[in-house]
Amino acid sequence: MHKPLATLAAIALFGQVATAEETDAATDHPYVGMWVTEDGRIRHELLPNGRYVEARGTRERAYEGRYEVTRNYIEYWDDTGFTADGDFIDGVLHHAGMILYRR
């Protein structure tokens, strides 16, 4: 069964197929941007395409992978295979025992 060409306006993303509508939703979510620990050592950049880059100290790309946000809950899948999660509470990201603030 073939879908209309407009429906096939999908892009390959994270090993899955996301429609343009789903991609727009990811782009518009309120948590996209930079999240940083108080001392600046850990930095999570949540990119609008559902990918993240984590910097640690002087290592700018210590970890990279994909993420999904459901309401105030975030799940991470690192490209090396490990997973993690966190919660956004009152505008603060609580992740793996760390607290990250919006920059």
Rank of each mutant, 00 (worst) to 15 (best):
E60T: 14
E45T: 15
D87G: 01
G65K: 06
L46G: 02
G86Q: 04
D87C: 02
G65Q: 08
M1H: 04
D90Y: 11
L8T: 01
R61S: 05
T19K: 01
A20G: 01
G65S: 04
A10P: 00
E21Q: 09
R51F: 07
E60F: 14
A26C: 09
T7I: 09
A20D: 04
I74P: 00
E45M: 12
D78P: 00
V53K: 04
L93A: 01
R66N: 07
V92M: 06
R103Y: 10
G57E: 06
L93I: 06
M34L: 15
Y73T: 14
E60K: 15
G33F: 10
I74V: 15
H2S: 13
A12Q: 07
D24L: 10
E22F: 02
E60H: 11
Y73Q: 12
A84N: 12
T83E: 09
D87S: 07
A62S: 12
V36F: 11
R51M: 05
H44N: 12
G33N: 03
A10L: 09
R66D: 06
L46N: 02
V17E: 06
L13V: 07
Y63W: 14
R103K: 12
D28K: 14
R56N: 11
Y31D: 06
E22M: 11
R43F: 10
D24F: 05
K3T: 05
V69A: 03
G15W: 05
T80A: 14
T19D: 00
H94Q: 08
A18Q: 06
E54F: 03
A84S: 14
L13S: 09
A18R: 09
M34T: 14
F88S: 01
P4Q: 03
R51W: 03
R103S: 10
V17A: 04
Y76P: 00
I74Y: 02
Y76M: 08
W77E: 12
D24C: 03
A18D: 03
D39P: 04
L8I: 00
P48S: 11
G57A: 06
L8W: 01
